[in-house]
Design a protein around this nucleic acid. Structure first.
Length: 305
DNA sequence: CGTTTTTGACCGGCGC
DNA sequence: GCGCCGGTCAAAAACG
């Protein structure tokens, strides 16, 4: 794998900090060689140095693997992004046609399908335009999210990154599956509510209906901001990933397709990054590899000083 | 023991 | 006015 091109495109991933020409040659050679002639140290020190060098080589190997994983992830991401934009365009066209046919549901829709590792999500945003005659202050944003789940799963949980407190459950007339009622865990300061129910005749689809707008930051975004110094780094800037600039998935869910269009691929990217981050942080081998890469960066800093 | 979930009771809107 | 229905409350239970 060509690590230099990755580092060129994404300087944040150039972990070969302060390597001189000789070190670089050794690194590209794949091995760190101990120069026994230049040092007049004891054999125990040599052993220790040898052990450390071996450890360093091991860590560098791990870093190579990590970069490889990231490159694969980025390639997958780019492929998904292209497909996503294509689907958004298709759905947008379809919705425009279907709107003409709708009588009762004069809703303003935007549909986007994201490819999570465990479910597919579709957004039908029924925003303010649903009731244009109402005064702006009493109109509330309502949106629907379709989530693919295991049909045998009865938990009625939709993972959207926010924390929710369940306050009720009802069996409704038109659906044998119960409807669960949630409030944002920041309530009462945050007015957002959500209803989750399985689709009639389709137990593999959950429909989450959101009401209102969060008046606080997305928990995942906050977590990323505090836990990662890399958020504002070139890798994010390069790919349009900027955690502070784009609305949260929830916020986007609640807005109409006009806002989606305005956001373009950047907003979509942000949502995908959050999905990816969520997935990757649950992967213990990935977090271990990240930890190894970080520790090596620190080691490189120490050795170069 | 504090927090979250469950679940029956209650309330208000709507149609008849 | 009455009954139906969706939404919310709040006490009890479950959970960590």
């Amino acid at each position: 794998m060509d690590t230099s091109s990755l580092s060129q495109n994404y300087p944040a991933f150039d972990l070969n900090i302060s390597m001189d020409a000789r070190e670089k040659e050794e690194f590209e050679d794949g091995e760190i060689h101990v120069d026994n002639k230049t040092k007049s140290s004891s054999s125990s020190e040599k052993d220790e140095r040898q052990a450390l060098m071996e450890k360093l080589n091991q860590m560098r190997f791990e870093k190579e693997k990590l970069i490889e994983m990231l490159t694969i992830s980025l390639e997958s991401y780019n492929a998904l992004q292209s497909r996503l934009i294509q689907l958004v365009q298709q759905d947008s066209d379809q919705l425009q046609n279907s709107r003409k046919r709708r009588k009762l549901e004069t809703t303003d829709n935007s549909t986007i399908t994201t490819l999570g590792n465990h479910h597919d999500t579709t957004y039908d945003s029924i925003s303010d335009e649903r009731s244009p005659n109402l005064p702006r202050e009493i109109r509330t944003n309502i949106s629907k999210v379709h989530v693919r789940v295991d049909p045998s799963d009865t938990s009625l949980v939709v993972k959207d990154g926010y924390q929710w407190r369940k306050y009720g459950q009802k069996v409704t007339k038109d659906n044998p599956s119960p409807r669960a009622y949630f409030k944002c865990s920041f309530a009462p300061s945050c007015p957002v509510k959500k209803k989750v129910q399985k689709k009639v005749g389709d137990p593999s689809t959950l429909i989450a209906t959101y009401e209102g707008e969060h008046n606080h930051q997305h928990p995942l975004r906050t977590e990323m901001y505090f836990s990662s110094a890399q958020v504002g780094s070139p890798i994010f800037a390069h790919s349009g990933w900027n955690c502070s600039e784009y609305p949260s998935p929830k916020e986007r869910v609640e807005t109409g397709d006009k806002k989606w269009e305005a956001l373009g691929s950047s907003g979509i990217q942000q949502f995908m990054v959050e999905q990816m981050a969520s997935t990757l942080t649950r992967n213990s081998s990935f977090t271990a590899a990240v930890a190894a890469a970080i520790s090596e960066t620190i080691t490189n800093h120490i050795f170069s000083e």
